[in-house]
């Protein structure tokens, strides 16, 4: 009755074709000699060579990378703390406010997050640049980390940590030596997620960036508005390649640990 039918097979094939074909096409055309999308002018890597001469793009990539690394690190620390507080601290003052603030940024439209961040920075008179983007990214990224870590933490058996404490370990040491290694895959996944979210964000960065701190998505967006060009395809291909390698490495590492 619940066999895998031919219809199911067709649904999977069509579904994955829909999900992956546009990306495959984009990658293929980044190696196109011709500038036109519909004309295949032969295999060429000239667009990749041209990227190296595009100083603006390389600068933007550097900004994005720095923002992403800083964001991911701060957001992972804060998000893990938030997850610990959510799962374990029952007598938190204004607990429901804390819970709401942890989940709200996940569903808040980016334009609103961006606008509100900018108004804060203007109100306190901070120059916009690297740190304002990083702070804005950290704020929404920490919520994603909190959700990822929380699900793992609430499945963790607390009695193991208590056993460590009964054997004389101070609470922080028991946490670091017993609980942290157990939730490490979730923390690592949270870091990776925060990094990707930051690297990917266009809207919030556009609101909170200042002169000299243009991120890669902002640079891509402004040239995409002028139309499709193979060198943007090349940038995208490099980014997709990095993500694919990163995700595969992460999967292999977690599998080996098991």
């Amino acid at each position: 009755m619940s066999r895998f039918t031919r219809l199911n097979g067709a649904a999977l094939a069509l579904g994955f074709a829909f999900l992956y074909l546009p990306i495959v096409i984009l990658i293929v055309f980044s190696f196109n000699e011709s500038r036109l999308v519909t004309v295949w002018g032969g295999f060429s890597t000239k667009w990749y060579v041209e990227l190296w001469r595009n100083a603006q793009l390389i600068d933007a990539a550097k900004v994005s990378l720095m923002v992403g690394l800083t964001t991911a690190t701060i957001a992972t620390v804060l998000g893990t703390l938030a997850a610990v507080a959510l799962v374990r601290t029952k007598r938190l003052p204004a607990r429901s406010l804390f819970t709401a603030m942890t989940y709200a940024p996940l569903v808040m439209p980016e334009v609103i997050t961006g606008l509100s961040m900018l108004l804060l920075f203007v109100a306190i008179g901070v120059d916009r640049g690297f740190w304002t983007i990083t702070i804005a990214h950290t704020t929404f990224a920490l919520c994603f980390v909190a959700v990822v870590v929380q699900s793992r933490l609430s499945a963790f058996d607390l009695s193991i940590e208590e056993a460590a404490q009964d054997l004389g370990a101070p609470p922080w040491k028991a946490f670091c030596l017993v609980t942290l290694p157990a939730i490490a895959p979730a923390v690592a996944a949270g870091w990776l997620l925060a990094f990707t979210l930051s690297l990917d964000d266009l809207v919030i960065a556009s609101f909170t960036s200042g002169p000299g701190s243009t991120t890669l998505p902002m640079r891509i967006f402004s040239s995409v508005r002028l139309g499709v060009s193979p060198d943007i395809n090349a940038v995208c291909t490099i980014l997709i390649g990095c993500v694919a390698v990163g995700v595969m490495t992460a999967t292999l590492v977690t599998h080996r640990r098991r």
Binding site: P22, I220, I232
Partner: peptide, 12 residues
Amino acid sequence: TSFLIRVYAWIG
């Protein structure tokens, strides 16, 4: 994969 890239892919 980047949201922006996935949307951009459809323009072509």
